[in-house]
Amino acid sequence: MTGLKVAFARATDRPVSNRIFGPTETARGNTMEEQLREAIIDELKRQAENSSELEIRQDGNRIVIIGAIDVDAIVMVVAGSIAGGP
């Protein structure tokens, strides 16, 4: 336990969890990278469903995009994901 945790435990007389989140891990257990990846892929799939000129193929962690995408929509999805929006 770090010095800060020990001090907090002593000051509050409460135990402190040893669980330490990674640099980008959220309380739900998903990393920020996972949340962003999911949001971007979902938005790309949504755009492909609404356009006959856009094709999205996913192969593992790579995506092949054939056609034009709405970058502003991707930016909004990323911003919403970071802010904790839907």
Rank of each mutant, 00 (worst) to 15 (best):
R28G: 14
L36D: 05
L44T: 05
I56N: 05
S17G: 10
S81I: 06
I20W: 01
V6C: 05
Q35A: 11
S52W: 00
A79N: 05
E34H: 13
I63M: 03
I41K: 02
E38I: 08
G85W: 08
A9C: 08
V75P: 00
E55W: 00
K5A: 09
S81D: 06
D70G: 00
M32P: 01
T31K: 08
Q35Y: 00
R37S: 13
G84C: 07
K5L: 05
K5I: 03
P86L: 10
E49Y: 07
T12R: 03
E33L: 12
S52L: 04
L54H: 05
S52A: 15
M32H: 05
R10H: 09
A79L: 12
I66W: 00
K45F: 13
T26H: 11
G67Q: 03
I56Q: 03
P23L: 15
L36M: 13
R57C: 02
D59M: 11
R19Y: 08
M1R: 01
F21P: 03
I63V: 15
I20N: 04
I56T: 07
F21C: 07
A48F: 04
V77F: 01
N30R: 15
T31R: 14
A9W: 04
L54G: 06
E33I: 13
E53I: 03
M32F: 11
I41G: 01
L36S: 02
I65Q: 08
R28P: 02
Q47F: 06
A48P: 09
A79P: 00
A7H: 02
V78F: 00
T26Q: 12
E43R: 06
S52V: 09
D13S: 13
D72E: 10
I40A: 06
A83K: 15
L36H: 03
M32A: 13
L54A: 06
G84A: 11
N61G: 11
N61R: 14
A7G: 06
E49C: 08
G80K: 04
Q35W: 00
G3L: 09
I40H: 03
A73R: 12
V75W: 00
G80M: 06
K5Q: 14
I74Q: 00
L44Q: 01
I56W: 02
E53C: 02
T24F: 14
V16S: 01
K45N: 15
V77Q: 11
I66V: 10
A9S: 15
G67R: 01
T24A: 13
E25Q: 09
G60N: 12
G60E: 14
M1H: 07
I65S: 04
E25N: 02
A9P: 03
I74G: 01
A73F: 01
Q35G: 08
R57G: 05
F21M: 10
A68E: 15
D13R: 11
A9G: 12
G60T: 05
P15I: 10
E55T: 15
S17R: 04
M76Y: 02
E55L: 08
A7I: 02
A73H: 06
N50K: 13
V64H: 12
G67F: 05
L4I: 11
E34Y: 07
R57L: 12
E55M: 09
E34S: 15
V16F: 05
S52E: 14
